[in-house]
Amino acid sequence: MGDGDETKGDDVATVVSVLDDSLARSILVRTANRALSADELVEGSESSRTTVYRRIRRLVELDLLTESQELDPDGHHFNTYRARLDRVTIDLGTNGFDIDVDRQVVEDDAVDRLNRLYERLQQ
């Protein structure tokens, strides 16, 4: 991951509601330092596969989770996920709540793939 960037314009209610969900938080925590596939996220969860997949999709839509295609030389590629969320700041002002979501830049190049190959070998 590279330097963080900060994207404003997130909706307070949306972000808070997602972070209020324990499964979403668990997914973000588990992918904070290493990329995991959907199957690996399902394996470490007590929720159903469908629920995990929905939560992953929601986090990706909100750009709190990034997905990368993993190499499969046989042609059956699959995605891995890594958290982009770095920090959430909520300020209370006269105009209401203001939310800032700091996101990490997740590289997706050959160097990142080499590191992910190693991480998958270590899991």
Binding site: L71, A110, R113
Partner: peptide, 21 residues
Amino acid sequence: ILWGMYGDPRPTDGRLIHRPT
């Protein structure tokens, strides 16, 4: 190892890196 990093060098779905940095 390079195959693992870059995928199939041919211009197919197996190629994962399209533009070197």
